[in-house]
Amino acid sequence: MNFNIIGYLIYLGITTFIILKVGKICYKNGNIYVADLIPNHADICQRINQVLLLAYYLLNIGYCAMTLISWKKIISSTQVIETICTKTAVIIFIISILHYLNILIITKYVEKLIHNN
Protein backbone atom coordinates (compact mmCIF):
# COMPACT_ATOMS: atom_id res chain seq x y z
CA MET A 1 0.00 0.00 0.00
CA ASN A 2 1.33 3.45 -0.93
CA PHE A 3 0.71 5.64 2.10
CA ASN A 4 1.94 8.76 0.28
CA ILE A 5 -0.85 8.63 -2.30
CA ILE A 6 -3.44 8.17 0.44
CA GLY A 7 -1.90 11.06 2.38
CA TYR A 8 -1.84 13.30 -0.70
CA LEU A 9 -5.52 12.71 -1.42
CA ILE A 10 -6.61 13.30 2.17
CA TYR A 11 -4.36 16.36 2.51
CA LEU A 12 -5.55 17.93 -0.74
CA GLY A 13 -9.16 17.26 0.20
CA ILE A 14 -8.82 18.82 3.64
CA THR A 15 -6.80 21.84 2.54
CA THR A 16 -8.97 22.52 -0.51
CA PHE A 17 -12.06 22.46 1.70
CA ILE A 18 -10.44 24.83 4.22
CA ILE A 19 -9.20 27.19 1.50
CA LEU A 20 -12.57 27.34 -0.26
CA LYS A 21 -14.53 27.76 2.98
CA VAL A 22 -12.26 30.49 4.37
CA GLY A 23 -12.17 32.21 0.96
CA LYS A 24 -15.96 32.28 0.78
CA ILE A 25 -16.24 33.71 4.31
CA CYS A 26 -13.54 36.33 3.68
CA TYR A 27 -15.08 37.28 0.35
CA LYS A 28 -18.54 37.74 1.87
CA ASN A 29 -17.28 39.76 4.83
CA GLY A 30 -14.59 41.46 2.77
CA ASN A 31 -17.18 43.15 0.57
CA ILE A 32 -18.60 44.90 3.62
CA TYR A 33 -15.13 45.78 4.92
CA VAL A 34 -13.83 47.15 1.60
CA ALA A 35 -17.10 49.05 0.99
CA ASP A 36 -16.70 50.68 4.39
CA LEU A 37 -13.12 51.68 3.56
CA ILE A 38 -14.00 53.06 0.13
CA PRO A 39 -17.54 54.46 0.39
CA ASN A 40 -19.59 55.39 -2.68
CA HIS A 41 -17.59 53.08 -4.98
CA ALA A 42 -19.42 49.76 -4.72
CA ASP A 43 -18.30 48.58 -8.16
CA ILE A 44 -14.61 49.17 -7.39
CA CYS A 45 -14.99 47.50 -3.98
CA GLN A 46 -16.56 44.44 -5.60
CA ARG A 47 -13.74 44.17 -8.12
CA ILE A 48 -11.04 44.60 -5.47
CA ASN A 49 -12.63 41.86 -3.40
CA GLN A 50 -12.86 39.54 -6.44
CA VAL A 51 -9.17 40.06 -7.22
CA LEU A 52 -8.25 39.39 -3.59
CA LEU A 53 -10.28 36.16 -3.65
CA LEU A 54 -8.73 34.97 -6.90
CA ALA A 55 -5.21 35.72 -5.65
CA TYR A 56 -6.01 33.96 -2.38
CA TYR A 57 -7.22 30.82 -4.17
CA LEU A 58 -4.31 30.70 -6.60
CA LEU A 59 -1.66 31.28 -3.96
CA ASN A 60 -2.98 28.82 -1.39
CA ILE A 61 -4.07 25.98 -3.67
CA GLY A 62 -0.84 26.35 -5.65
CA TYR A 63 1.20 26.25 -2.46
CA CYS A 64 -0.66 23.15 -1.23
CA ALA A 65 0.03 21.36 -4.49
CA MET A 66 3.70 22.37 -4.46
CA THR A 67 4.24 21.10 -0.92
CA LEU A 68 3.53 17.54 -2.07
CA ILE A 69 7.05 17.26 -3.49
CA SER A 70 8.56 17.92 -0.06
CA TRP A 71 6.88 14.92 1.59
CA LYS A 72 9.16 12.14 2.71
CA LYS A 73 8.25 8.49 2.16
CA ILE A 74 5.42 7.56 4.52
CA ILE A 75 5.63 4.03 5.87
CA SER A 76 2.78 3.84 8.40
CA SER A 77 -0.76 5.04 8.99
CA THR A 78 0.44 6.96 12.04
CA GLN A 79 2.93 8.82 9.90
CA VAL A 80 0.14 9.64 7.39
CA ILE A 81 -1.87 11.34 10.13
CA GLU A 82 1.17 13.19 11.53
CA THR A 83 2.20 14.45 8.10
CA ILE A 84 -1.32 15.56 7.16
CA CYS A 85 -1.73 17.39 10.48
CA THR A 86 1.63 19.13 10.20
CA LYS A 87 1.16 20.19 6.57
CA THR A 88 -2.43 21.31 7.20
CA ALA A 89 -1.34 23.37 10.22
CA VAL A 90 1.22 25.17 8.03
CA ILE A 91 -1.49 26.02 5.47
CA ILE A 92 -3.83 27.33 8.18
CA PHE A 93 -0.99 29.45 9.59
CA ILE A 94 -0.20 30.87 6.14
CA ILE A 95 -3.87 31.66 5.49
CA SER A 96 -4.17 33.54 8.78
CA ILE A 97 -1.00 35.56 8.12
CA LEU A 98 -2.19 36.45 4.60
CA HIS A 99 -5.58 37.49 5.95
CA TYR A 100 -4.09 39.88 8.48
CA LEU A 101 -1.57 41.24 5.97
CA ASN A 102 -4.39 41.99 3.51
CA ILE A 103 -6.34 43.85 6.18
CA LEU A 104 -3.24 45.77 7.26
CA ILE A 105 -2.26 46.74 3.71
CA ILE A 106 -5.76 47.79 2.70
CA THR A 107 -6.26 49.77 5.92
CA LYS A 108 -2.92 51.56 5.59
CA TYR A 109 -3.59 52.34 1.93
CA VAL A 110 -7.01 53.81 2.68
CA GLU A 111 -5.64 55.80 5.62
CA LYS A 112 -2.99 57.20 3.28
CA LEU A 113 -5.67 58.17 0.76
CA ILE A 114 -7.80 59.83 3.43
CA HIS A 115 -4.87 61.85 4.84
CA ASN A 116 -3.81 63.00 1.36
CA ASN A 117 -7.28 64.38 0.58
Rank of each mutant, 00 (worst) to 15 (best):
K21M: 15
K21I: 14
K21A: 14
V22Q: 00
V22N: 02
G23Q: 09
G23P: 11
G23F: 12
G23E: 09
I25S: 03
C26N: 02
C26K: 02
Y27G: 06
N29W: 11
N29T: 09
N29R: 12
N31K: 05
I32K: 15
I32V: 15
L37W: 03
P39Y: 11
P39D: 10
N40H: 03
D43E: 11
C45Q: 00
C45N: 02
Q46S: 13
Q46W: 14
Q46H: 15
Q46I: 13
R47H: 07
I48N: 01
Q50T: 04
L53S: 10
L54I: 01
Y56E: 02
Y56R: 03
Y57F: 04
L58E: 09
L59C: 01
I61Q: 08
I61F: 08
I61P: 03
G62Q: 11
Y63P: 09
A65F: 06
A65N: 07
L68N: 06
I69G: 04
K72T: 04
I75N: 10
I75G: 09
I75E: 06
S76Q: 03
T83N: 03
T83K: 04
T83L: 06
C85F: 04
C85M: 10
C85W: 03
C85T: 12
T86A: 14
K87L: 01
K87Y: 03
T88L: 00
T88M: 02
A89V: 09
I91L: 13
I92F: 06
F93T: 08
I95Y: 06
S96K: 15
S96N: 15
S96I: 15
S96R: 15
I97S: 07
I97M: 07
I97K: 11
H99N: 14
H99I: 14
Y100F: 14
L104Q: 09
L104F: 10
L104C: 09
I106T: 05
T107Q: 14
T107N: 12
K108H: 12
K112H: 12
L113M: 11
L113T: 07
L113G: 10
H115W: 08
H115T: 07
N116I: 12
N116H: 13
